[in-house]
């Protein structure tokens, strides 16, 4: 007899656990839906437009990012801009934008010829799978850009 009842008790406990888990998922889904609206690619483009006049050209900027980021809270990025970094020709500003975060801006970096190489490493948060866009402004005013899509398994930015 004890074995039978124990079996019954366990079965009902299992059911409770399953129900609880389902409830948990529903709660998570709800918070996801209730989360503040995320930025759109258009907002990201608008932010980038403030950086400089003219249309950025593809090239000269290299962005190294993982294709799949397991944790959106720390996504390692390396940005490298091809430039001789001489007083006549150097990288002035580099701006990074993520088009699916609550706020599209990520960071802005200011360089000068003393840097020798326009390279920077950082770790950023990504709320979801989205596109990172980097725009570099050279000392002659020309703009160069690159973009890279990153798949995020667990989003950062809290919620």
């Amino acid at each position: 007899m004890p074995a039978y009842f124990a079996e019954r008790a366990m079965a009902s406990r299992r059911r409770i656990l399953v129900t609880a888990a389902a409830g948990g998922f529903a709660a998570v889904a709800e918070t996801l839906l209730a989360r503040a609206a995320l930025a759109t690619p258009a907002q990201a483009a608008a932010l980038l437009a403030q950086l400089g006049k003219g249309k950025p050209r593809e090239g000269r900027v290299n962005l190294t990012a993982p294709a799949i980021a397991e944790n959106g809270n720390t996504v390692p990025l390396t940005i490298d801009v091809e430039s001789p970094m001489t007083p006549k020709d150097y990288v002035k500003v580099v701006r990074i934008v993520a088009d699916g975060n609550p706020n599209p801006g990520v960071a802005t970096f200011h360089f000068s010829p003393v840097n020798g190489r326009a390279q920077v490493q950082l770790r950023c948060r990504l709320a979801q799978s989205e596109k990172l866009i980097v725009v570099a402004e050279m000392s002659d005013g020309s703009l160069w850009t690159t973009a890279r899509a990153v798949k995020v398994t667990i989003g950062g930015c809290g919620g």
């Binding site: 809270n73 720390t74 975060n101 960071a107 970096f109 200011h110 840097n115 920077v120 770790r123 948060r125």
Partner: peptide, 20 residues
């Protein structure tokens, strides 16, 4: 070197840059 950071930077911000 100067950087302007936004909330999209991870906790314990790490930055590396170059200098001649």
């Amino acid at each position: 070197f100067r950087a302007e950071l936004e909330p999209a930077i991870s906790a314990n911000p790490y930055l590396s840059f170059c200098l001649r």
